[in-house]
């Protein structure tokens, strides 16, 4: 029983309850950096770290938080984890930190984090909340990494900064520009909804 719940908690955000293509949440902060796979990786790791640990922290405190100041406490905890990400990046990966600029700070307003806390962590045990947060982060991560994969590959002919496609390739500059992000995400949602979601409905 307990095991199946754990399994379900872990698997649901990856598929039929995916935060990005089912609930369309939290794309704001990261979509802007999806023109490079490397930047996207760092951002989604930051989001995963924050979702998992803030869900865990709030779940630990869930019986003690006065309901009136619930939101404030949640924001405080989330912001603390984001500041940790920011400080660590600045100290150990300064170049990455420079490139991401204000986007690290915007993880705070990522709706997924607050959403998982409100919907899950307040009612569940710490470990389960940690798993839920981590899985939501993962479900978010793979979608954005897929978007970044196509944007970087088509837009610059390279992946992770290494040239993949030869000189015959004409870069689709539009892909690394802002409109490209909208188009790739839309197509991604379209494909997922037409294939996977349809099967589940039937």
């Amino acid at each position: 029983m307990a095991k199946s719940k754990l399994r379900k908690t872990f698997l649901e955000p990856l598929g039929k309850n995916n935060p990005v293509f089912v609930q369309i949440l939290g794309i704001c902060s990261t979509l802007a950096v999806t023109n490079k796979l490397q930047n996207t990786m760092v951002m989604v790791l930051g989001v995963m770290f924050t979702t998992a640990l803030s869900s865990w922290t709030i779940s630990l405190l869930r019986n003690h938080i006065p309901s009136r100041i619930r939101m404030m406490v949640e924001t405080m905890v989330i912001a603390t984890f984001v500041i940790i990400v920011d400080i660590v990046l600045k100290a150990f990966y300064p170049e990455m930190w420079k490139q991401l600029g204000p986007y690290v700070g915007l993880i705070i307003t990522n709706c997924i984090i607050m959403g998982r806390i409100e919907a899950f962590a307040l009612q569940n045990k710490p470990f389960l909340s940690l798993v839920d947060g981590l899985a939501s982060g993962l479900g978010y991560a793979y979608v954005l990494l897929a978007i970044a994969f196509f944007r970087e590959l088509l837009g610059t002919g390279s992946l992770w900064g290494y040239q993949i496609l030869g000189s015959w390739w004409t870069n689709w500059s539009i892909m690394i520009m802002p409109p490209g992000g909208f188009f790739v995400l839309a197509i991604f949602i379209w494909v997922i909804r037409e294939t996977i979601m349809k099967e589940e409905k039937a």
Binding site: P178, G181, F183, A186, R193, K198
Partner: peptide
Amino acid sequence: PPGLEGPGITLIIAGFMA
């Protein structure tokens, strides 16, 4: 197309607006 309804088409339009 049913898969594009809602967010899908909105994102595509947003792309054109961008």
